[in-house]
Design a protein around this nucleic acid. Sequence first.
DNA 1: CCGTATCCCATCAGATACTG
DNA 2: CAGTATCTGATGGGATACGG
Lengths: 124, 124
Amino acid sequence: MNKPRHSRFDCAPGCAVEAAIGLIDGKWKSIILFHLLPGTLRFNEIRRAVTGCSPRMMTKQLRELEVDGLISRKVYAQVPPKVEYTLSPLGRSMEPILLALKTWGDANLSRYGKPRVVDPRVPD
Amino acid sequence: MNKPRHSRFDCAPGCAVEAAIGLIDGKWKSIILFHLLPGTLRFNEIRRAVTGCSPRMMTKQLRELEVDGLISRKVYAQVPPKVEYTLSPLGRSMEPILLALKTWGDANLSRYGKPRVVDPRVPD
DNA sequence: CCGTATCCCATCAGATACTG
DNA sequence: CAGTATCTGATGGGATACGG
């Protein structure tokens, strides 16, 4: 995001964490990246993969990912238009993160059925 | 978040990724969790670790993390008040994610100085 | 097919001030 | 110390319609 929720770098040192998450923060970014792991996809293919994302949002997220250097965009000058999105080397370098996310999600979804299950509060 | 930016589960199967990131999405959550990795912290200790977060936001983020079962909150009935936040087992299970985030951020911050350096667009 | 433009409202998140 | 209350501007994000 040009203006993510994260202030990106006004955090104290050690917030490489914040820098990293700042890039995949955004409603659909992580899922987009995840779906791009297997390979190049076209605009509407991504939309189909990421259920419930409007074209407007899709464009926005893709643009931000592009500006951040995580994906590259290739336009074919033809009719009908064809645009392909591919993980850049930088984007691909996030694979471990994406995989960690997926691993965690899988483990939890399968173990608990769904998150937000644990009651952390002792009734006092 | 009760109402995170992520719709949490209206995504197609395979979006364990989304579920996972939904939990650490939120302006300061990942950094809070990260700082809790070494051990228990008190409210203001976290605030100090997470530069620039207002008490209001801090409370909000902590509550959400608590509701999501990632941290636990222990209140000491004394004056002055003392409240400790600790990673729950579930929260600690996110350590690989947090570490992946940090690793990536470190690699990029040190390599490029700062992100958003790559120009993915071929001038056509 | 791949977007962009506009309208519109819900939510976010900072500042500030106050309390048990 | 550890929050809560309120106000306010900013942003997000959905719906819809249109354009190359």
